[in-house]
Nucleic acid binder design. Structure first.
Lengths: 128, 128
DNA sequence: CTAAACCTTGACGTTGACGTCAAAGTCAAA
DNA sequence: TTTGACTTTGACGTCAACGTCAAGGTTTAG
């Protein structure tokens, strides 16, 4: 498929997909015309990239991690010790992020609930 | 206290603290000389700012939320409906972020554990 | 064959939370 | 009063993951 279809199917802009290729996250075939040709498996691949990006990993590390995940979703072992250490550091960072998010989430909850207890809320409706 | 002490006590750079003031998150007194004078309560205030920043809130929203939290840590109600809606949107965004982080965390875990099962790890030492 | 809808590379712009100078004024201890 | 550590404002730099535009080739339905 061409880049537009992959974009529609993943929700990632064509600019984003070209950027991913530039960063070594995608390796599409090329037609004689220069058009990129993506495989079906790239749809899942892009989705995995999105998950890791959303988790705060940068493209460099994602480029290292992706080869550990096959097209079928199976998990392979990291290829070197250095990468394994990177992954563990990243996992710890993510654990901290999760904890921090929970703390902030409780902060907001407390404020929001304080507001909901107020009598000045005169509508009994469910919020839209 | 001056800005340097607040910086040391919070771990936030002086540049960062000046930026917070610029964004309306801090309102230090000023000496005749122009030097900022911070109060004890600003230490906790900066820590709350850090928590919310780490959670992905931007300084504009934090400036709205901070007045809902007193120096003693008590929670006040949000001052207007619009802000309450902002907070709920932000809370939902944080919930999604937490879920996304968990998914990515499990991804990394799977890869890391795949590596630990390999026999090629010949050292029985704890990793440094 | 033509027109619309696609694709290419290249290059500059955006955003937020700061980092990093520079030039100059201030504080406080000895 | 000197000196060194501290502070001020101002302004430009950074970084990552894209957005956005331009000028031009490609594909394919009709």
């Amino acid at each position: 498929m061409f880049i537009g279809e992959l974009s529609r199917r993943t929700g990632v802009s064509t600019r984003g997909l070209r950027y991913y290729e530039e960063q070594g996250l995608l390796h599409p075939q090329r037609r004689a015309s220069g058009y990129r040709e993506f495989a079906e498996a790239d749809v899942d691949r892009v989705r995995r990239v999105r998950v890791l990006l959303a988790a705060g990993l940068n493209t460099d590390l994602i480029a290292e991690v992706l080869p550990c995940m096959t097209d079928t979703g199976a998990i392979l072992a990291p290829t070197c010790e250095e990468m394994a250490r990177d992954l563990e550091r990243e996992r710890e960072r993510m654990s901290r992020s999760i904890d921090e998010l929970k703390v902030a989430h409780e902060m907001l909850d407390a404020i929001i609930h304080a507001g909901e207890l107020l009598p000045e809320r005169r509508d009994g409706e469910a919020h839209r």
